[in-house]
Design a protein around this nucleic acid. Structure first.
Lengths: 198, 198
DNA sequence: TTTGCGTTTAACAAATTTGTCAAACATAAT
DNA sequence: ATTATGTTTGACAAATTTGTTAAACGCAAA
């Protein structure tokens, strides 16, 4: 009998993820996704039944990605090294999937009423709680400036992600070539560290 | 004769801007916009000819808004006060139109090829150049940490805007009520100032 | 009142996007 | 070679969204 193989299903999902998360083409149609995957459009229905179900699969992946990112705590005792590791992970993520976060926000805004069930039960993970506690501890130790730990966390996220999300616009504002912008982004790890550690 | 009055045209544009910039409903249809404006859908075509032309008008407004924001330099001699004024302006803007920036990015990503002419000639304004020069000067004076002035500017933008853009998601992650989140945002001016000024 | 002109509306047409289905296809097992 | 099972395709139907048109409407000037 025929083997239930076919990487088509994955190809379609990957194409959708690339369009949404990497290229920020939020209004991509199933036709565009199929084209990007190099397959016939009806295969989207064959494998996912409907456009919405494909989108929900993709959203679910985004959510898992975010969860795992929030859990991405290093087995590093040294706090500064741990933060460095966080920045590396987040920056790499933001480089590959600059629009992942705002895709999720966008989906949240789309429904408003429906409150997409995939995004309902997002919550502080245990690791995140532990991390926030550790941040607070380090503030007491004086390694970093005192503030609500959540603010420290949000600062870190902001400084990493926003320049990636805004890349198309900021490139125009500053008249930067792609190379110049990447160079600027590369400089940021050190700058962010300096900011976070007083 | 009949007066060429009718605030309908403006109502439609305002409704679109609210949906796009304030609510982040990027996939809003003309029907939804008309509903939000409380008018018949065909009036969109009557006043703007086509959906795309309305969207371009809205985009043009966004662009003007951004331009004026980049120009929003205070007649303030004291550098710190000037930065405070900037933060106030940007925070207020981000509060009213949290999705304005990413709407523009989204539009830039939509076309890719076409390179929407409305967003082609965005560039460093003179005021922005002057501001960057002033930032550099202040670094020499030691008021703020040394780094490429553009990085200082981007840090400021990131710390202000990202928490607003990500509000729907971060509210879930941290299990914050709306009130708690607004409280957290309100705390940020002082925190951002502390970060920017060493 | 009537005329003129801009505005609003509903019905309709066109365009775009999504979903269905039956037939063709591929390939491994019989 | 034939069969069985999963995959792919094109043609078609349905749904959604956008655009057009002619008629109705409102109101001020003649």
């Amino acid at each position: 009998m025929a083997v239930k193989d076919s990487r088509t299903e994955q190809q379609i999902k990957d194409a959708a993820k690339k369009l949404f998360f990497t290229e920020g083409r939020f209004k991509a149609t199933t036709q565009e996704i199929a084209d990007a995957a190099g397959v016939n459009r009806t295969l989207v229905n064959y494998y996912f039944r409907s456009r919405d179900q494909l989108f929900d699969q993709v959203l679910k992946d985004a959510r898992l990605q975010m969860d795992s990112r929030l859990e991405a705590t290093a087995d590093e005792k040294n706090f500064r090294k741990k933060i460095e590791h966080f920045i590396d992970v987040f920056m790499e993520q933001a480089r590959n999937y600059p629009y992942l976060d705002i895709y999720m926000v966008s989906r949240l805004n789309d429904d408003v009423e429906k409150q997409n069930e995939i995004l309902t039960d997002i919550k502080k993970t245990d690791k995140l709680k532990l991390f926030l506690a550790e941040i607070e501890e380090q503030m007491k130790l004086g390694t970093i400036n005192k503030m609500p730990p959540v603010q420290f966390f949000i600062n870190m996220l902001s400084l990493i992600s926003y320049p990636q999300v805004m890349q198309p616009l900021l490139k125009k504002v500053f008249r930067y070539t792609d190379k110049q912008y990447q160079q600027m982004l590369a400089e940021r790890k050190a700058i962010i560290l300096k900011i976070l550690f007083r």
